[in-house]
Structure formats: C-alpha cells, structure tokens
C-alpha cells in the first residue's frame, strides 16, 4: 500500500509511476513511513532534481509530444473509422476497415480455400512477430556473452570503455549502409560464396545466403544486436563484485553464481534491450527490401501501398494494429521482468 503513496501523491509529477519526479523535498516524513522499497527510490529521484521546478522542465517535452505525437495519433485513430472514397476519405463513420482487416472471405466455410486462415494483414503481422522473436533470441545469444565479457571479464575501466565503443563502431555509419553492405558479402558473387568455392566446400555459388530468410535474419541480428549489448552491459557492470566474492567464499560454483546472482541481476538490462530490439523490428521494412529482396511483406510496406493510392482509412487501421501489437509485446516483456522491482 505504502508503495503506491509515492507515485500518486499530488506533490509528484510524472507521466507514469516509473518516472515520478519530486517537486520539493519536504515529504521526508511521509517517506519514512512508506515502507522498505521506497527510501532508495525517493532518494535517487530527489538527487536528480534538487528542489527545482520540475514541472517547467518537462513542459517542452509534454508540448512536443502532445502536438507531434498525441494529436497525430488521435487523427490516425479517427481516420481509421472514416470511409475510403477511392481518392481520399469521407468522414462517414464505419467499422468496415476493421472488418476488412480481420475478416477473411470464407473464414468459417469449411469448403472455402481460406477456411480458418488468418487475414493477409494478420498474417503479415504474424510474420513480423515471428521474425522479431527469432532475431531477439539470436541477439540475446550473441549479445549477452559480449556484454558479460565486457562487464565481468575485462577488469580495467578504460578497457571496458574502449571495447564498448568498439562495439558501437558499426553505428557510426548509416543504417542503410550497414544493410547494403551485406550484398557484396552474401551475394552469388559475394565474398562468402567465393570463399566457399575456393575452399572446395561447394561446387558452384549457393544462392540461399542472400534474398533469403537466412540472410535476412543474419542481417537483422547484426543490425540490432548492439541495442541489447548496451543495456545488458550496464546491468552487469552495476553488480557489486563483493557479492560474487561472497558467493564464491560460501562455496557456490561458477554456474551457480551465474544462475543465482548474475542472471537475475542482469534481467532489467535484458528486458530493456529486448524492448529496444522488439520495437525496432516490428517497424522494420528497409532491410526486408534490401537484404530479403522484397520477398516478404512488412506492415510498413502494406501501409505504404494503401497510402499511395489514397486509402488512408485502411492505412490507418494497419498503423494502429501495428502499434497495438507493439504495445502487447512490450507489456509481455515487462510482465516477465519487473524492471522497477529489479532496479
């Protein structure tokens, strides 16, 4: 109960419980009575805003978000109920767009070819989801060891920093260049194929490397893995080495230490990293064109195809459903790992 007193206190301003900001420092009495978990949080929050006018500080951001995020979002929501006229839209409310999005002709008809098949738009979303999950798992598999090495194996801080910056090098070039760079690597006449042929592993160049699910997944992992290395690295670096020593002294094996201490303490970083990657992947459409050769459709291309010839309401429905899917994904991740408790 006491925990809830802090976020909802009128003296606190914030858009969510996690972002509670204290306006003044006079609530110490209340804090004393607010249970074990909050003093730390209160102290941290107060330190970052020493008695300032926090309300004014967030005003520009609030205004910005209102004008350029909430208003457009609200219009997209409203447009999604408009009627498409073939050359624009008319403000005649309809739910037809949503029906079209979900419904498939002959869905309940056992005779029909499309019996119990999800609509094209749902399956596009599903494909995107499937790729997102695969790539997230691979990113974790690749990224976690990197972060672990940086945070716990490298002892000197300056080396940690140097190696971490090295990890970031690919981010110094544009996203598109990093995607395009896969073409000379994976192509039929690419570096990899040439090596395979020279080494006598294959007789003639293989084509499954590029414009394939394999190449696409590889590229996505490379493009996004750093997004999870950062947060995991910071979570791991925060672990008090003395705890690990204590565990060792008490006879815990290396694996036990990893499983019982390191993994739980790094979960917030994992969750944040996974959220970053998930959100980016759901909106991804450029590398599908470049690396997958457009052989897959993404929600982005669907929206563009309907937008191009002025079916704005249906483009709006697709945009909203993508957002809903993203939100569900983020909520699920946050359910699995309670970041606030962990931090």
């Amino acid at each position: 109960m006491a925990n809830h007193a802090i976020p909802h206190h009128p003296g606190l301003i914030g858009t969510g419980p996690g972002q509670a900001v204290r306006r003044d420092g006079d609530a110490s009495g209340e804090r004393a009575g607010s249970g074990a978990a909050t003093p730390a949080a209160g102290a941290r929050v107060r330190r970052s805003h020493p008695g300032g006018h926090a309300g004014w500080l967030i005003a520009p951001a609030t205004l910005w978000l209102f004008v350029f995020l909430l208003v457009p979002l609200a219009s997209i929501f409203v447009f999604s109920f408009f009627t498409s006229t073939g050359h624009g839209m008319a403000p005649e409310p309809t739910i037809k767009n949503y029906v079209d999005y979900f419904e498939v002709e002959g869905f309940f008809d056992p005779e029909a070819r499309k019996f119990l098949k999800p609509s094209v738009f749902l399956s596009t979303l599903g494909t995107t989801f499937r790729f997102a999950l695969t790539v997230m798992a691979l990113c974790l598999l690749v990224g976690y060891p990197i972060a672990y090495f940086l945070a716990l194996q490298v002892q000197a801080f300056k080396w940690q920093l140097a190696l971490f910056l090295l990890c970031m090098v690919p981010f110094w070039t544009s996203y598109l260049i990093r995607a395009v760079a896969w073409l000379p690597m994976l192509g039929r006449r690419g570096l990899l194929n040439r090596a395979l042929v020279e080494l006598g592993i294959v007789e003639k160049p293989v084509s499954f490397l590029l414009y394939s699910e394999f190449g696409y997944t590889m590229a996505l992992v490379q493009l996004y893995v750093v997004l999870c290395v950062g947060p995991i690295f910071f979570s791991l670096a925060k672990i008090d080495r003395q705890i690990l020593e204590a565990a060792r002294d008490m006879g815990a094996s290396a694996f036990q230490i990893f499983r019982e201490i390191i993994v739980p303490l790094s979960l917030p970083g994992v969750a944040i990293g996974m959220i970053f990657i998930f959100v980016m992947l759901m909106g991804e459409f450029a590398s599908a064109v470049v690396v997958y050769g457009g052989k897959i459709s993404t929600v982005g291309t669907v929206i563009l195809n309907y937008y191009t010839f002025a079916n704005y309401p249906f483009a709006a429905v697709n945009a909203l459903m993508l957002m809903v899917a993203m939100m569900i994904g983020v909520i699920v991740i946050l359910r699995v790992v309670d970041i606030r408790k962990q931090l």
């Binding site: 498409s84 094209v120 738009f121 399956s123 459709s297 669907v302 010839f309 249906f314």
Partner: peptide, 14 residues
C-alpha cells in the same frame, strides 16, 4: 479493384 489487388499482392509476398 486496386485494394483487392494490394491485399492479394501482400499475400503473394508473404
């Protein structure tokens, strides 16, 4: 039938 065409083309790509 442009809308229907786009829908089926999406299915083709998928």
């Amino acid at each position: 039938e442009n809308d229907y065409l786009v829908e089926r083309w999406t299915e083709f790509l998928n």
